[in-house]
Design a protein around this nucleic acid. Sequence first.
DNA 1: TTACCAACAGCAATCGTTTGCACAACTGGT
DNA 2: ACCAGTTGTGCAAACGATTGCTGTTGGTAA
Lengths: 341, 341
Amino acid sequence: MKRTTIKDIARQLGVNPSTVSRAMKDHPDIGLTLRNEIKQLADQLHYRPNHMAVYLRQRSSRLVGLIVPEVTMFFYPSVIRGIQNVLHEHGYNLIMLPSNESLEREMENIQICYENDVAGIMLALSRYTQTSEHLAMLEEVGAPVVMFDKILDGLPYDSIVLEDFESARLAASHLIETGCRRIAGIFGNPNLRITQLRLDGFRQALQDFNLEQHADLICFSDNPYDAEKCARTFMALDSAPDGIFAMTDEIIIGALPAIATSGKKIPEECSVICISDGFLPYCLHPKVTFLHHDGYEVGRLTAQRMIDLIESGQYVNKDYRGQKIMVKARLIELATTRRRE
Amino acid sequence: MKRTTIKDIARQLGVNPSTVSRAMKDHPDIGLTLRNEIKQLADQLHYRPNHMAVYLRQRSSRLVGLIVPEVTMFFYPSVIRGIQNVLHEHGYNLIMLPSNESLEREMENIQICYENDVAGIMLALSRYTQTSEHLAMLEEVGAPVVMFDKILDGLPYDSIVLEDFESARLAASHLIETGCRRIAGIFGNPNLRITQLRLDGFRQALQDFNLEQHADLICFSDNPYDAEKCARTFMALDSAPDGIFAMTDEIIIGALPAIATSGKKIPEECSVICISDGFLPYCLHPKVTFLHHDGYEVGRLTAQRMIDLIESGQYVNKDYRGQKIMVKARLIELATTRRRE
DNA sequence: TTACCAACAGCAATCGTTTGCACAACTGGT
DNA sequence: ACCAGTTGTGCAAACGATTGCTGTTGGTAA
């Protein structure tokens, strides 16, 4: 199956390819009669310009690379939706490059972006990316970079992040304000920046309210199964918590059933709060009050910033230092939390 | 930031671009000394071939289009992982094109594949795609097509699908074999092929065991919230079901909490089974026995078939009629289901 | 010395599209 | 009849990489 090219049309009409090219983009040089004739034939032959050839001539592709650590069922689907919607509006296409949480793969993905001469790169770092050495290649690519969610401070790129510290602080504060005094927290992998920030925010809240910090009421878990164990351990404690904070969707989905079946009533004996992308808390039982970390919004903002950079060309300035955009979380109260006055 | 091209290297070394090109691919015509010299400089300048230029010369891109109805948190993340892993192994890249469940967008996405002259298209149809008229464009593209999950029968393309009828039949049979007699089913959107197939399978099982079909024990729901309502309605019935089948992850996540809080004991008074991608049933409480519809496997097989078609060139044969590959589901018994002898 | 063959390198065309420039064919004013 | 101006069209180069062909060395055998 051969593609129809501009040449085919030119040949059939006995005109020059350049005339066809101009006619297709309504260049005033081409007479209306001929222009229509050309367009009609183009339509008839299903002519569509070859993006790659156009790119080669114009040196600007309409492909944008998206490098993510992994496509999990949490958070990333929303982000991708947000990104796609904005990108599509502006006529850009997405090339997806999961790093499988591997540093090596992350480098390779940047390489691939370079080979395809993408117009820009959107990047969430793998969990093993603690330094920026292997990111040197990003400079080479010469395309704007926007980082999101999993970022590294000190890099000269724009970034879109959620207010991790603040959300965790607010979540814990909400538990305290509604009467909880022994608050436990279930966190993710302690090596992640995001975990540290949320842990700090959590602790800040306890400190703000002059509550004692109990080391045995903090635990870390990489997945829902471990989170379930954490929750069971908490609930089996002699002095069990009267409030539990879960750092992510992945954690609450494991922890909630354990809490619910511990014998304690939710929220009368133990309140629960989490940080979530906003879908799960509505589905789970009992419904869980949460701070909405809106992945869709992060995706939209990331793509929006990407487009701005591409089209403004700001990033070519060597001195350009990206700014960090913080996305605020909103408290969504699905569960009444007890008030003990 | 300018890319290093083959010409830059040639100029610096005072040789012809063609010599550089040949040296880079170890053509025997180029002497070892020169060859190494070229390679070294290429390395130093971070030379990487421009994919688009290569494509233009060779008329074959290493881009594959993935058209999906929507990127939801269920099923598609697994599929995408499977696809990516296989594609990456073979040096292909993925361009993601969500249709947002819109027919128009689906057509546009096929168009985009054409414009980018992709090497192949992997396609899951939007829910509104009941006829194949608007898919005529697929022929035009001249690239191999593999459909998966949401397919349409009668199209000449390969397809990878799950055994919907059979899985539903097995699930319902399992409930019956473990003692259930009044079995309810919660299904998805009744206009979808997949829903009809699963419904048919479900009914087949009842028939196989000579159980009466109760119209009031079948309901349809587009989302977890409606599924929750369905489940509540069932449980409130005078003659409540003693077994419930949920067609998808999306449904079980809504339905299970409703069942669990109905007062009836699971599984002693009411058994639950569902069809799932395999993650959720481990997280939910109580754990749910399920038929594993492995999205990751579907993704892998789809991509594998894609690669085979591209590299064998079979699809150019006008008479080529794709075959349908059925992926079997496996029963995973997480919950003991009561046995009433 | 001549003939021949490797070994090595360059020329130029090609892929599909765009675009600056030149040029041809008109019109109308003098 | 001539020039200026308008309108329409074509030529050719360019983007980066590849490849068939040609041409130039050097060496070896006759």
